[in-house]
Every structure is written in C-alpha cells, then in structure tokens.
Design a protein around this nucleic acid. Structure first.
Lengths: 128, 128
DNA sequence: TCGCTAACTAGATGTCTGTCAAATTAGAGA
DNA sequence: TCTCTAATTTGACAGACATCTAGTTAGCGA
C-alpha cells in the first residue's frame, strides 16, 4: 500500500466542479442507487453507526456481542437486530467461538462507500 | 443565532474526532453518532442518492428542479420532499432564480462523511 | 444429564417515512 | 390585472422500522 503513488489532493479544494469523485463523475443510474442506498441506510441509524465504530475500534478488529450490548441502553435483542441489519448489508461479518459471537468489519465495503462520497478516487485500495 | 461570531471552519477538517481515520480511530460517542447518522440516513434512499449524484454531475455543479424531476418516475411533490430532506441534512443548498430553483451540493459535508468511512486516512486534508 | 449464560428469533406495538392528490405560493409575460 | 408554469406545502395513508417482552437455540461446566 504505497501512499506515494496516490496523488496528493487537498480535499478542501474539492468543490463540486472538481470532478473525479465517483458521485460527481457520472450520475448513478437507478439500479446502482438501488444497490448502494441500503448500505447508507444501514449506517443511517445512530445505534448502528456506533456499533460499527465500536467494532472497528475494538482491539483485534473484532468485538464480542456482550461488549457491544454493554455500551448501550438497549436490550440485547435490539442490539442483535441492529447487528443483523449491518450484517445483511454486508458491512460486518461474524463467527461464533464457543459461548461468544464475534463481529468484525468488512473493510472493503466501507472503503467503497468512502470512495463514492470521496472527492477523489480514493482507492479502490480496499477491494482485493 | 449570530452568524458573525462563528469562526470560519473548513468543514472537511471539522469532523467529530478531528483526527485521522475517524471510524477506525476511536469509537464515536452517542452524541456524535446522533449527529452523523442522519446524514447517512439522508443518502440512504435510492431516490435521494441519485438526486445527489445528478446534482453533483450536472454542469455548473447545480441543477434545476425541473431537470431532476424529469429523471424520475415520481411526482414533483415527492422529488420536492426528497430535496427538502437532503437540504435539511445540510447536504445540498438551493436558491431561486426567477422561475426556477437551483440546487447544488455542499461538498464539505460529503467529504466529511467520506473521511469518516475512509480506510486509511483518506487524505485527511491537511497532511501533504 | 441438568442448570446457567450468551445470543438470537418471534410477535406485538407505536412511530417514522415515502408517496400521491389537492391546494398554495412565486415569477414571468400578456 | 389575469393567466400560465415552476415549485412547495398540506393532508392522508400504506408500508417499513426500532424497540420491547417472551420464548428458543447453543455451548459450557458440574
């Protein structure tokens, strides 16, 4: 991942006319929008956004449901529901290990969304 | 609210965690999530995501409502509603010019969201 | 095997949201 | 002034959603 060959572009210089931002390059057609919107919708909830953040920041890049539940004033089923939404959107993945279930982020998807909004072609870095 | 004593802040630099790889740096607290989630929610609808894209791609960086409405199979009030949602989220802005109303993107907000999701410091503006 | 705990599913409920038809506001021109 | 068009607001309604309680599944240890 050489940062070097990426052009250095000041994000602040990005006004709408600057082109080359995915969103700003060519308008999304209906099908693309239909495919992408659910991803944003998934993180368009405070609880889920925070869940995502908590998972991403957790050591090892993964977090146990019990840790996550403890961070909210919500019941376990509710947290479970939100995790399911994130997972179905493809933003996170999970695995059971003994008694506990661990969740981790799917970084490629996040990178894709970032690139879409981003002022520059950030990188398809994430996608292998 | 006196607008005048507000410091001029580059929105792109004004992100919640003010540092680098937002989501992945330090977990968002509840307040931050509560503030940011509505932005993602706003683009979490296929119609609005496409509206945003259409506006961004339109020549001159702005688009007339009539152009936008024509691109969908929806009634004008519905488009109007979605534009209002985007505007209230701060993602777009508008101005009436004679008979027509023009909308344009607020690029700073988009950049902020991109940076938040961005993997490695999507180019945090300042760092050359 | 029996309990105990972690996590999820199912069902119910009140709220939010996307959409439309109808009514309203704002300019432009005759 | 009156009329036409662009755009928004209002009100209504069906469908989606966040949350809860209660019940269920899965693994661990005695």
């Amino acid at each position: 991942m050489s940062k070097q060959d990426l052009p250095v572009i000041d994000v602040t210089a990005n006004d709408a006319s600057a082109c080359c931002a995915p969103l700003v390059c060519e308008p999304l057609n209906a099908a693309e929008a239909e495919e992408l919107a659910p991803l944003f919708k998934a993180i368009g909830d405070p609880v889920r956004l925070r869940l995502l953040s908590l998972i991403a920041c957790h050591e090892g890049g993964e977090a146990c449901v019990c840790d996550l539940t403890a961070a909210f004033d919500l019941t376990a089923p509710t947290i479970s529901h939100h995790l399911k939404v994130l997972k179905q959107a493809g933003l996170i993945d999970s695995e059971r290990r003994g008694t506990w279930v661990y969740y981790w982020i799917n970084p490629g998807v996040l990178a894709r969304l970032s690139a879409l909004l981003g002022p520059r072609a950030v990188a398809m870095a994430g996608t292998p």
